[in-house]
């Protein structure tokens, strides 16, 4: 039973991190119908920036909650900047071109960023410091939930709530929903499309960076290629939940997290990644609109 519970908790935390990345995919897809292949790389850059920031800040004598929060904020800001720049360079000039062009450009961007980090830093695995402070009040539930998992769940829940409030109640959130519905109409109503798209990339990137920080804390090591697999899985989660749907992305991510965790626990850990890919293929074939998505009829 405890084995089951272990797997359950690891699935939950894994799923939470996928959710943070999946939101970026789903938001971008919802607005400009593009699979942002470079999104996984933004997550990786978030993790690397967090590592560098933590080294510099701890050398300055920072520690505990202050360190964790500052590192998260720095990583988020940098990832946001990268996300914005990627959109400006690789996607904006291609708006209105054929469908294949932005997709190939996205793959190119992803490849570029991967190799940029590899060349600027290292192609080896790098140790990630333990940033999560000790939490004595967790003693009673320590058997079920460790401090890293608590932080992951807390961060994820808070980000989801913040995102939902943002989409529902702010002016920009409303503009995003409008653009997702009908870009032409939104533009005619005076919505600044460029700003909305940029904001979407920035928000998605910030969430991905948080995912990067959390995965660093949880796995304790990062490397330049980590964005590819995580990106693929997060995309699977987004599709599973129904691409374009925000609650869908979260549900899809959790399902994927559990599936992987149980498959690794009960079947074989070497097939964990295969499970995710097979789930992806099966959904795309049988229910391409996902769990929360709606079947769309192509306009003729």
């Amino acid at each position: 039973m405890t084995y089951f519970l272990d797997l359950f908790m690891s699935g939950l935390t894994r799923g939470s991190i996928y959710a943070l990345i999946a939101l970026g995919y789903t938001m971008v897809y919802g607005i400009i119908a593009l699979i942002n292949f470079a999104h996984g790389e933004i997550y990786m850059i978030g993790a690397f920036t967090a590592l560098l920031a933590s080294m510099v800040l701890s050398a300055q004598g920072m520690s505990g909650w202050g360190l964790l929060l500052s590192v998260a904020v720095i990583a988020a800001i940098y990832a946001g900047m990268y996300g914005w720049t990627v959109e400006r360079i690789a996607y904006r000039p291609l708006r209105g071109s054929s469908r294949l062009a932005p997709l190939i450009s996205a793959i190119g961007m992803s490849f570029f960023l991967q190799n940029y980090v590899q060349l600027a830093q290292t192609s080896n695995f790098v140790l990630f410091p333990d940033l999560i402070p000790q939490m004595p009040f967790l003693k009673p539930i320590a058997g079920y939930l460790n401090r890293t998992q608590v932080i992951i769940l807390l961060f994820t829940t808070l980000s989801m709530v913040a995102l939902t409030l943002f989409i529902k109640f702010t002016k920009m959130g409303m503009a995003m929903r409008a653009v997702a519905q009908d870009m032409t109409m939104a533009r005619l109503s005076g919505v600044n499309i460029d700003r909305v798209i940029s904001s979407t990339f920035i928000i998605g990137s910030v969430l991905a960076a948080l995912g990067g920080v959390l995965i660093g804390c949880s796995m304790r090591q990062i490397y330049f290629y980590m964005g590819f697999l995580a990106g693929m899985k997060a995309f699977t989660a987004a599709v599973l939940g129904g691409i374009g749907s925000i609650p869908g992305a979260v549900i899809g991510a959790l399902i994927l997290g559990f599936a992987e965790s149980f498959a690794a626990g009960y079947i074989s850990s070497s097939y964990r990644d295969v499970v995710a890919f097979i789930i992806l293929i099966i959904i795309l074939i049988f229910r391409p609109e996902g769990i929360m998505g709606q079947a769309q009829t192509q306009k003729v």
Partner: peptide, 28 residues
């Protein structure tokens, strides 16, 4: 046969997955 109904970007993802599955299977 199964994936051909999918449109452009979904097809890209499925073929990518297929490539990865093939490699992982060969590896295991």
């Amino acid at each position: 046969f199964p994936v051909i109904r999918l449109s452009g970007d979904y097809l890209a993802i499925v073929t990518l997955s297929f490539g990865e599955i093939t490699r992982l299977v060969l590896n295991n």
